[in-house]
Design a protein around this nucleic acid. Structure first.
Lengths: 223, 223
DNA sequence: CAAGCGTTTTAGACACGCTTAAAACTCTTT
DNA sequence: AAAGAGTTTTAAGCGTGTCTAAAACGCTTG
């Protein structure tokens, strides 16, 4: 009845769609993300398409139907609320909450998720800065820029850190660049694309792998 | 790899074993408890026996191996800690926590369960009074008596209420007979087996269905 | 435009977990 | 001891979700 893996596929399709909104999501990218073979992804696509949760054309990738997107947003809501819960209530390090939330998110009754939301006082992002959809699938979409794309001298606040880049969370924590941290771009190297930033009085040189995994928001300018 | 339903079967076999420690657990009783057909239970028994988690003889019922019992106790631990968590932290009514915990218990990583235990300050019973095994499967086994078996005049404390008797939790709550409540047996009817009790100044007549679903402990008598 | 490479789909297989229907067994009852 | 009732097991089938190996496709390159 329920279908356990289905929702995971839908959520991953949604995430991939967001990362690259222009083209449809390829079989291989979903298979990679889920850690299964392309053949398995194809088989799942057929089931999801049969149930009108995705649109699937042979050799042409997939996209979510409105119905599929609703389900995907529900999974993301559960996932990110659970992450917040694990971090804020159970004090589990933020490096681990994504993995744990992946395991837990399917089994949680709606009422439990809703009560967690109340307990947490309606957070609107997960600990890594991704938005938490409300019960109707709505969520804030603030104007964020990749750290990679900043100019020298800009002062910004860290808003989001990609939780699926191996080792990044640990690294970012050591540097004091968690969501909410303030930083200033003090230099850019146009050849190797390194970015030098200053935060809490210390300077750090960030490579491309890092600077394109961190989103920031410009500080409100007055006047 | 993991096997989702397997653990449910093991836990239910354990529960049934406790209810009737003398004979082995029958196929039908497990099937009833799990809400599946006897054929399904038989099929699962073969898988569990193949993996040395139960001992299974054709037409002869099943019993847990030490390994199977360890797993079963782990499930019970998770189940009852989650119940406590749902009741105490998320304030979900105790009538519902058993159902929700059933859904959640498989998906919870050990670390999450352990942190819940710390947050709850190491409770040793679930909200209905069943003991919570520790990480090694050990748990307190206090001397409890069925309310059914009390004599007139005895003063006792409610210790445990069977959470799987339909409607009982609601009924018991209305009567003020939650675990911890004190009561005195004021009469017994030897024909219809009704028991009359007094609690908080009010008297109630309890039928057999109720009196054999509530365990009590005798109050410490001072020497 | 054809060759070739990488991606995707098909084909065939398997484990899990469930079903119904029929056969086998056990136990009680006469 | 045979009959019958109730329980349990077998048999056959279905959906999910995965795999490997082989075939089909599509795109880039010579």
């Amino acid at each position: 009845m329920s279908g356990l893996a289905r929702e995971d596929y839908l959520a991953d399709i949604y995430r991939l769609q967001c990362e690259n909104p222009h083209d449809p999501v390829s079989t291989g990218s979903v298979a990679d993300r889920r850690g299964v073979t392309a053949a398995s992804a194809t088989a799942m696509f057929k089931r999801l398409a049969r149930d009108h949760l995705i649109v699937y054309r042979n050799y042409g990738g997939v996209s979510l139907t409105p119905e599929g997107q609703d389900l995907a947003l529900g999974v993301l809501r559960r996932h990110r609320l659970v992450e917040r819960f694990l971090a804020d209530v159970l004090h589990i390090p933020w490096q681990q909450v994504d993995t744990y939330a992946d395991q837990m998110e399917h089994a949680l009754p709606d009422e439990v998720v809703d009560r967690m939301e109340v307990l947490l006082e309606n957070p609107y992002t997960c600990p890594h800065g991704y938005p938490i959809p409300d019960k109707h699938g709505h969520f804030a979409q603030p104007d964020l820029i990749l750290l990679r794309d900043l100019s020298v001298g800009e002062q910004v606040r860290v808003a989001r850190v990609n939780e699926r880049v191996p080792g990044l969370l640990r690294y970012v924590e050591d540097l004091g660049l968690m969501p909410g941290s303030l930083l200033r771009v003090s230099a850019r190297n146009p050849v190797d694309l390194n970015v030098t930033i200053e935060t809490e009085g210390r300077a750090h040189i960030l490579g491309l792998r890092v600077s394109e995994a961190i989103w920031v928001e410009r500080l409100e300018s007055r006047g």
